[in-house]
């Protein structure tokens, strides 16, 4: 390392590595991962979301999981919580739907109404 620029470069590279521990969570995406969720393909959905976020280099979104919520026939379920907005629950989220949710809801703030199962105020 010979200069400030070198240090900056290493820093930017390394920040991705610790991002999960330090980021301030603005938006949260929560994937239902109960037994039937997993059977319905929730893991593929989760991975598609992570892949899409990383392709688009979106930094301030936290992706977590939750257990069974008792709505098995609508699985895989995905919740999106944006600050100051109601919690949106999407149903039957295939990997393809998941990518579109990221593109539309996360990036452009456009909720995809036809897949919405429920909307919960104050979440």
């Amino acid at each position: 390392m010979k200069s400030l620029e070198d240090l900056k470069r290493i820093r930017e590279q390394a920040q991705a590595q610790i991002k999960l521990r330090t980021q301030e969570a603005n938006t949260k995406i929560i994937v239902g991962m109960g037994t039937c969720g997993i059977a319905a393909g929730a893991r593929e959905t989760l991975m598609a979301i992570l892949d899409e976020l990383s392709k688009r280099n979106i930094q301030d979104v936290v992706v977590t999981q939750t257990g069974c919520v008792g709505l098995c026939e609508y699985e895989p379920l995905v919740n999106v919580v944006k600050p100051g907005q109601p919690k949106i629950t999407y149903m039957k989220v295939t990997p393809e739907r998941a990518r579109q949710i990221v593109a539309s809801h996360i990036v452009n703030d456009q909720i995809i109404n036809e897949w919405v199962l429920s909307t919960e105020e104050g979440a």
Binding site: I10, A14, I18
Partner: peptide, 16 residues
Amino acid sequence: VIDPESIEEYIAKEGY
């Protein structure tokens, strides 16, 4: 927050 054996992680947290 960081791994004490990784200089990269220290640098990521404003190190140096």
